[in-house]
Design a binder for these strands. Structure first.
Length: 770
DNA sequence: CTAGTCCGTGTGCAT
DNA sequence: CACGGACTAG
């Protein structure tokens, strides 16, 4: 048991031991915030507070899991087990599964992701014959989302003349009706979207005093991380839950508020003192993460913002290297430069690849870095973008699962009713939808009682097909009770013919899709096994599906992904740190993004984003930009970002790319030296670069799941024997203990060095000989 | 009803 | 460029 209080500095210790009453911790970047949160919880528990009465809200589920692990090292496993921690969305989804019935939702309600939500909206726009050029589904969705995050219900909307005017002046007078219908459709499908998870939590807390009392009484201590990124809806939940004991501790940094676009309200942190006049405030200003050079450079950036809480981030760390600024010729040259730096650093210092992070403003920028890293055989992992669970083939299979669990789920129904093709097409779907609207029920209500709705005018052969489909889903439903998630999922995969039809596609993309589905089944198998090992585990499919929609790429952490270069957006990098960070695409209209250059507030948020990016670095930071880059499939000229100039020049080291051997493609007239770079030119200390070929690389179109490595996944091409050493994609190294079954049912029991003993189906497990 | 093809439109970050 | 939606031929 470590003496945790000794390893803390003065303000950190004060924040940990001050357990009673409201308090706010303003934590500068790298100031040991996580440590404070962790030890504060541990400290509470050592004082005898039951973990059961502590609620801890973090930014990612992964952060929550890590925190829990660290806490259990101080107070023990059995103590920390009952701690409630996770993201707002996951914690309150759990509460809504218990309390949602007060609002008329089933416990197994579906969580609609952004795609589902947009499809519902598109359907409504079509049904209402609205002009989809004006009512763009995406902007309608954004508006609805912002209403919800501000707790404006469809009824509330009718009272808000200002909002109605705003929508009317955007030529969307039907916005209110659309919003109301959208809510109805979700409700009749037994579905909540992401915003509902917060909105409905508020609703159930405010409308049902007994529910409020239950959770107020339970959560005696509440901690909220990244408070600067909470929106109004989240703010109200915290306020309601904390109002009995008022032991609420919020931690944040206004300088790192980067989620205004999804409703985060920076005033939540700025006004905390007003909400709780007796609140104590602690400031953590000593940075332990970065070199002095990086800390000071970051300070010099954020100074340009007007809105902020005064603080002085400092460090005792060494000065360190200056930040390298590099101008690349093109986006692919930028990729090559970064890959080359990583290659050299790796060769010289033998640093692990995972020490490096490439951070960009937009997901679309990942391409050139993937290509460059792949060329050099440098392993990497991409976070975000199209995450695994958003892939079409994955969502298709999960749609069957969703239907089995909640047949009311209309988006799932529409997704798979005719996939694989069963002769139920658009015409029939239209008839079903109309019948559902008329009968004020959902599509499943019609389909499962098709005989009761002759007015739907569906012809007999089609009725038979619908009945077959319904029977199939009901069969799945019946299995849920007493079968494991893996059993049901494999059964669904087989009998729905989905996997068969995927397997027929022999194109590289098709094979990829097939493998992704196998990987999903693997994940379900892992889940089943893990749950079976727990004494109170729930290995059913509903438990698996419950928070699948809320998983992010950061939460999927495989041992095998350990030693890889990290590629992600700056947003996703929040809360992380790396020895070496490349902030790439430092160009006007990319970063700051064109969309954010309209107002001071938006621009300040971009600047905070830059601050976040730079403060991820521990020892080395690079800022790179390109002279020309492919955007929308076309070459465009770029100007260096204003943010580079905003960094105090004494912390920077400018390096210019040798352009001599570069010849522009014919279609580019701009061979004029566009040196808008006005800083005094310093002689580059870098070794002269090799002549560059303008590598307009052939687009290798293989982007698999969230990762791609130079060595593709290999099927088993050797004979397994007991005692053999093998490597698994996720579990790492292990020894074969036993082999059972035959053919496609052949299983191996493998004792993994770090992941314990697992029984794996060989047709799924991608094993390699060690 | 299906499957294949073309066209046009958008790409900002994300629970 | 890349995806989804619309259109058209069987």
């Amino acid at each position: 048991m470590e003496d945790y209080l000794k390893v803390l500095n003065e303000p950190q210790r004060a924040a940990v031991v001050n357990t009673e009453g409201p308090m706010m911790v303003i934590a500068g970047a790298g100031s040991g915030k996580t440590r404070v949160l962790t030890y504060r919880i541990a400290h509470l528990m050592k004082k005898g507070v039951d973990a059961f009465s502590i609620l801890s809200l973090t930014f990612t589920n992964k952060a929550a899991a890590e925190m829990k692990e660290r806490i259990s090292k101080v107070v023990g496993d059995s103590e920390s087990k009952n701690l409630w921690s996770g993201t707002f969305h996951s914690v309150f989804a759990k509460i809504l599964r218990i309390e949602g019935h007060f609002l008329g939702y089933p416990a197994n309600f579906t969580i609609y992701d952004a795609e589902d939500a947009r499809k519902v909206i598109s359907t409504l726009i079509k049904e209402k014959h609205l002009d989809k050029e004006i009512y763009k589904p995406k902007s309608v969705a954004n508006r609805i989302s912002s209403y919800k995050n501000n707790l404006i219900t469809p009824k509330g909307y009718l009272k808000r003349a200002d909002l109605q005017e705003l929508d009317a002046s955007a030529k969307m007078p039907e916005m209110g009706a659309l919003y109301a219908d959208y809510c109805d459709r979700c409700f009749r499908a037994g579905a909540m979207d992401f915003d509902d998870l917060l909105l409905k939590t508020n609703e159930v807390l405010y409308r049902f005093p007994e529910v409020l009392a239950k959770y107020q009484g339970r959560f005696k201590y509440i901690m909220v991380d990244e408070y600067q990124d909470t929106n109004h809806s989240q703010y109200l939940i915290v306020k309601a839950l904390a109002s009995k004991f008022e032991n609420v501790c919020v931690v944040g940094d206004d300088a790192q508020s980067i989620y205004a676009f999804r409703g985060a309200n920076i005033r939540n942190i700025l006004n905390f003192q007003k909400d709780y006049p007796q609140a104590k405030t602690f400031k953590l200003e000593q940075n332990y993460r970065s070199t002095n050079n990086i800390v000071q450079a970051a300070n010099s950036i954020i100074k340009h913002n007007q809105d902020q809480i005064e603080k002085d981030v400092w460090t005792q760390n060494d000065g360190g290297e200056k930040i390298t600024v590099h101008k690349a010729i093109s986006d692919s040259d930028e990729g090559n430069y970064v890959a080359q730096r990583i290659f050299e650093a790796q060769a010289q210092n033998n640093s692990p690849y995972s020490d490096f992070a490439i951070l960009y403003r937009t997901n679309a920028q990942s391409r050139s870095f993937e290509d460059a890293l792949r060329k050099k055989n440098i392993p990497y992992r991409i976070y975000g973008g199209l995450s695994f669970y958003q892939r079409k083939e994955i969502k298709d299979l999960l749609a069957y699962v969703r239907l089995a669990i909640n047949p009311q789920d209309e988006e799932a129904f529409k997704r798979v009713i005719n996939y694989p093709a069963r002769g139920i097409g658009a015409t029939t779907m239209d008839k079903l939808a109309i019948a559902a609207n008329n009968a004020n029920t959902n599509i499943w209500g019609i389909a499962s009682n098709i005989d009761l709705y002759p007015q739907a005018k569906i012809n007999n052969p089609t009725i038979v097909k619908i009945r077959d489909f319904v029977t199939m889903i009901q069969g799945y439903q019946a299995m849920l009770e007493n079968h494991s998630a893996f059993d049901v999922a494999t059964h669904i995969a087989k009998t729905s013919k989905l996997v068969v039809s995927l397997g027929e596609d022999k194109t590289p993309e098709g094979i990829n899709r097939y493998e992704n589905v196998q990987e999903l089944l693997n994940a379900i198998q892992d889940f089943t096994e893990q749950q079976q090992q727990l004494e109170d585990g729930d290995f059913g499919l509903p438990a698996f599906l419950a928070d699948v929609a809320l998983l992010t790429d950061a939460d999927r952490d495989d041992p095998n992904d350990m030693n890889k270069v990290n590629l992600m957006t700056i947003h996703l990098a929040k809360g992380l740190e790396f020895p070496t960070v490349f902030v790439v695409g430092m160009e006007e209209s990319l970063f700051p993004n064109l969309m954010s250059m309209g107002s001071r507030a938006d621009l300040e948020e971009e600047r905070r984003l830059f601050y976040v990016a730079l403060t991820r670095a521990e020892t080395n930071a690079y800022l790179t930009y390109a002279h020309v880059r492919y955007r929308w499939g076309k070459l465009v000229d770029c100007e260096p970002s204003r943010f580079i100039e905003e960094v105090d020049d004494k912390y920077l080291d400018h390096k210019l790319s040798e352009i001599s051997s570069f010849s522009f493609p014919d279609d580019m007239s701009t061979s004029k030296p566009r040196t808008s770079w006005r800083k005094p030119e310093k002689k580059s200390t870098m070794p002269p670069k090799k002549p560059l070929t303008p590598s307009i690389t052939p687009k290798g179109n293989f982007k698999k799941a969230s990762e791609t490595t130079s060595s593709g996944g290999t099927r088993i091409d050797f004979t397994l024997e007991e005692g053999m050493r093998v490597v698994h994609d996720r579990f790492g190294m292990g020894t074969v203990v036993a082999l059972t079954g035959a053919a496609s049912d052949r299983k191996a029991t493998i004792s993994f060095d770090n992941a314990g003993e697992k029984k794996l189906l060989l047709k799924f497990a991608k094993l390699q000989r060690a």
